[in-house]
Write a protein that binds this DNA or RNA. Structure first.
Length: 506
RNA sequence: GUCUUGUUAGCUCAGCUGGUAGAGCACGUCACUUUUAAUGAUGUGGCCGAUGGUUCGAAUCCAUCACAGGACACCA
C-alpha cells in the first residue's frame, strides 16, 4: 500500500483531527496579499526603526513550512514560497484562545502549506520576521519531507521525484529559472532580429535532417508508422524555399540512442535559417547572441565551469586543419595524408577503423587532440567535405565546406553552415546515403525526395545553425550532467512499477 | 555495450577479518515566550534492493538480476 508508512499514517490522523475540528486541511480559501520577497523588501526599513516593529502594517503571506522550532508558548516557523524564505513568530497569546496548544502544536508540522497574517518586526538576533496574529492551514502534507539539514542528495530520488528536489534545493529551482530565461531570451533575440518563430512537425514520415536512430510510433487512422523527429532541418529549409527569409524553431528532438551525462533521448535545440547570408554572418550573430545572453543573465565574462574558467570575451576562429597543429600539437606533416595520419594515431596508441578517408581521419585527429582543449569559445571552420554531408562546398576550395562548429569548455555547442541548395547535388548525396544504408550503416540518412523537389524550385542561398539548448544551459549554470538541466530526465522504469512494466511487454 | 562504485529507518549515513542492526535529523511524549540545523529528557521506528548459493550461522563472502552514480565506447 502506498500510504502504509507509519509517519504517513500519523499525518493522515492529524488531517482527520483537523477536519473534525472544523479546519479543512485542503482548503481553497487563500487570502495571500504579499509574496515573501516583497514582504522582505517592503519592510527592510524596520531594522532601522526605533521599535524594530510596526504594528500598523499588516500582511498575509503563505508558504510551505521548512523549519519548526517550538519553544513552549512560542514558536518560530520558517515558511518558503517561490520567492523566498520568511521567519514567522507564533506566540500562544496572540492567537485565538486554545488554537496554539490544540491545533498549531499538535497538528501543524514541517511540510504543511500555511497562510499567516501579522505585522513585521525584527528579532533580537536581527532577523526581519512576521509576528503572527492568525495562522491557517492551507494544505496538509501527509508525506514527511526529507531531512532538514542534508536535504535530499540521492540523485536517483532527485531525478525521479523532482518535486522533492525542488522543495528541498533552492539552487535547483535557480537552475531551472535560468533555463527558462535562456529560452525566453533566445526567442526574444531572434525575434528582434526579424526572425519568424515557426512550428514544424514532430511526427515525420521520414526521419531526416540528421543521422540518428528515430523513435517509431503509429498513426492508426492512416495505418502507417511515423517517426518522432530527429531534427527539424528539412522542414525549416522548405520554409525558406517558400519565401520566409529568416525562421527559427525552439523545440524537442528525439533520438533513439544511449543516455549519458550529455545525452537524453529527448532534447531541446534551436535551429535557425537565414536567407541571403553565409556561415560568416552566423559567426557574427552567434557572438552577438552570447553577448546578449550574458548581459541579460548578468553573468560574468569569466565564467567558471567546474575546475576551469571560460573567457567569453575571447572568441577565436581557427580553420580545422590549422587547429590540429596550433591547438592539438600534431606535427604539420602528420595532418595532410592518410598514411601519415594513421601512423601518427598509431604512435599514440589510437587504432582507427580501416577504410577511413582523409577528411574522416582529420576529424579523428581533431576529436583526439583538439576538441577538449578548446576552452574559450572557438569557431572551428573549413571542415573537410567528407564529414560535412549537409554543408555547402566552398566555392574557392571544393575539398572544404562553408561550415563551423562552436566549441566551449571542450564541448560542441553549435553546428552551422551555408546550406546546400543545389537540388541535383542534394539528390546525389541522398543516393550516397542510401548506398551506405544498403551496406549496413543503419544511421545513414533516408532519401527524402519531397525535400529534393522543394529544393528544385530554388532555395535562396541560406545559412543555418543549430544550438543545443540543454548543453548551453549546462554551460551557463555550471552543471555537468544533462539530467541536472532537465526537469524530468529520462529514467528506466523501476522494477515492479506495473504500469510501466506493462508498456515494456507490449 | 564494457568497466567500476553504490543500494541498510521517512532523509543523511555508520556497521572492520561472518555471530539475528546503530547514529544524527525527522516522528511520539514531557519541559521551555526571541530561536537560527534551537535546547534538555525520554520513547517508537528495519524483509539491510531482489533471487539463489556457501556456512551451524550472512547486512557482511560468492553468483545472477534490477536500479542508480562515475568512466570509457557508441552517437561522422
Amino acid at each position: 500500500m502506498i500510504f502504509d508508512n507509519k509517519f504517513i499514517q500519523q499525518r493522515i490522523e492529524k488531517a482527520k483531527l483537523l477536519k473534525e475540528a472544523g479546519f479543512n486541511p485542503y482548503t481553497n480559501e487563500s487570502k495571500r496579499n504579499c509574496s515573501i520577497e516583497k514582504y522582505l523588501n517592503v519592510n527592510s526599513d524596520i531594522a532601522e526603526s526605533e521599535e524594530k516593529r510596526d504594528e500598523n502594517r499588516h500582511y498575509i503571506v503563505s508558504g510551505r513550512i521548512k523549519l519548526l522550532r517550538i519553544m513552549g508558548k512560542a514558536s518560530f516557523v520558517k515558511i518558503e514560497d517561490e520567492s523566498g524564505m520568511l521567519q514567522i513568530y507564533v506566540a500562544r497569546d496572540n492567537l485565538p484562545e486554545g488554537f496554539y496548544n490544540t491545533m498549531f502544536k499538535k497538528n501543524i508540522e514541517v511540510g504543511d502549506i500555511i497562510e499567516v497574517a501579522g505585522f513585521p518586526f525584527v528579532t533580537g538576533q536581527g532577523e526581519l520576521s512576521l509576528h503572527a496574529d492568525s495562522l491557517t492551514l492551507l494544505t496538509k502534507a501527509i508525506s514527511p519531507l526529507p531531512e532538514k539539514f542534508h536535504g535530499i542528495t540521492d540523485k536517483e530520488i532527485r531525478y525521479r521525484k523532482r518535486y522533492l528536489d525542488l522543495i528541498m534545493n533552492a539552487e535547483v529551482r535557480k537552475t531551472f529559472q535560468t533555463r527558462s530565461k535562456v529560452i525566453s531570451l533566445t526567442r526574444r533575440f531572434f525575434e528582434d532580429k526579424g526572425f519568424l518563430e515557426v512550428e514544424t512537425p514532430m511526427m515525420h514520415p521520414i526521419a531526416g535532417g540528421a543521422n540518428a536512430k528515430p523513435f517509431v510510433t503509429h498513426h492508426n487512422a492512416l495505418g502507417i508508422d511515423r517517426f518522432l523527429r530527429i531534427a527539424p532541418e528539412l522542414y525549416l529549409k522548405r520554409l525558406i524555399v517558400g519565401g520566409f527569409e529568416a525562421v527559427f524553431e525552439i523545440n524537442r528532438n528525439f533520438r533513439n540512442e544511449g543516455m549519458d551525462t550529455t545525452h537524453n533521448p529527448e532534447f531541446t535545440s534551436i535551429e535557425f535559417y537565414w536567407a541571403y547570408k553565409t556561415y560568416k554572418d552566423l559567426i557574427e550573430i552567434t557572438k552577438e547572441y552570447f553577448q546578449y545572453l550574458f548581459e541579460h543573465l548578468n553573468l560574468p565574462t569569466m565564467l567558471p565551469y567546474g575546475d576551469i574558467e571560460v573567457n567569453f570575451a575571447n572568441f577565436q576562429e581557427i580553420p580545422l586543419i590549422e587547429s590540429l597543429t596550433t591547438v592539438g600539437g600534431v606535427p604539420a606533416e602528420s595532418c595532410n595524408d592518410k598514411e601519415s595520419i594513421i601512423a601518427y594515431l598509431n604512435s599514440k596508441n589510437i587504432t582507427v577503423k580501416p577504410g577511413m578517408n582523409l577528411g574522416q581521419l582529420q576529424g579523428e585527429l581533431f576529436d583526439e587532440f583538439v576538441e577538449e582543449k578548446l576552452i574559450d569559445p572557438t569557431f572551428i571552420t573549413e571542415y573537410p567535405v567528407e564529414i560535412s554531408p549537409l554543408a555547402r562546398r566552398s566555392d574557392e576550395n571544393p575539398a572544404i565546406t562553408e561550415r563551423f562548429e562552436l566549441f566551449i569548455a571542450g564541448r560542441e555547442i553549435a553546428n552551422a553552415f551555408s546550406e546546400l541548395n543545389d537540388p541535383i547535388d542534394q539528390l546525389e548525396r541522398f543516393e550516397g546515403q542510401m548506398a551506405a544504408k544498403d551496406s549496413g550503416d543503419d544511421e545513414a540518412h533516408e532519401m527524402d525526395s519531397d525535400f529534393v523537389e522543394a529544393l528544385s524550385y530554388g532555395m535562396a542561398p541560406t545559412a543555418g545553425q543549430g544550438i543545443g539548448i540543454d548543453r548551453l544551459v549546462m554551460l551557463l549554470t555550471n552543471e555537468h550532467s544533462i539530467r541536472d538541466v532537465l526537469l524530468f530526465p529520462a529514467m528506466k522504469p523501476l522494477n515492479g512499477d506495473e504500469a510501466e512494466m506493462q508498456t515494456e511487454e507490449n
